[in-house]
């Protein structure tokens, strides 16, 4: 049992990170903090996908002299690269929304905003 847990420690870590992020989104009051929680969740998912492709002692899959199996899978890295682009655009959009909320309402605390509505 412990052995199995230890072998999969990278997956467990990303699930724990994912849950921490979700907790922050639900529990924190400040919009920026909520958004940081979302970023932690994103990082958790990315690290999970990267961990999928890693093989112990695996080499970069570049053919040529000295190329030797086993190779790490390059696909997860391509996926995560795309995922990071998406995460950056989400971050940009969310921060600009927060700026506009602050300009209009003078606060970014969720409970104070709820009272204003």
């Amino acid at each position: 049992m412990l052995e199995a847990l230890w072998n999969n420690v990278d997956y467990i870590a990303s699930v724990v990170l994912f849950c921490i992020g979700l907790y922050i989104i639900i529990a924190k009051n400040n919009l920026i903090k909520k958004f940081l929680g979302l970023n932690i969740m994103e990082t958790a998912v990315f690290s999970f996908i990267i961990a999928l492709g890693v093989i112990d002692g695996g080499d970069a899959p570049i053919m040529g002299a000295g190329a030797q199996a086993p190779f790490s899978s390059p696909v997860p890295q391509a996926l995560v690269l795309t995922g990071i682009v998406v995460a950056v655009s989400t971050t940009a959009l969310a921060l600009s929304l927060i700026i506009r909320i602050y300009r209009q309402c003078g606060t970014i605390e969720a409970d104070e905003l709820r009272e204003m509505e």
Binding site: I25, L31, M41, V45, L79, L97
Partner: peptide, 26 residues
Amino acid sequence: EMAAFKYLLMGAISSLLVLFSVGIIF
């Protein structure tokens, strides 16, 4: 903006769930 932000938070979480399960399936 408030409505959009609420939409963004829920939407981004659901997208991450989708990405997570795409990762699991892969």
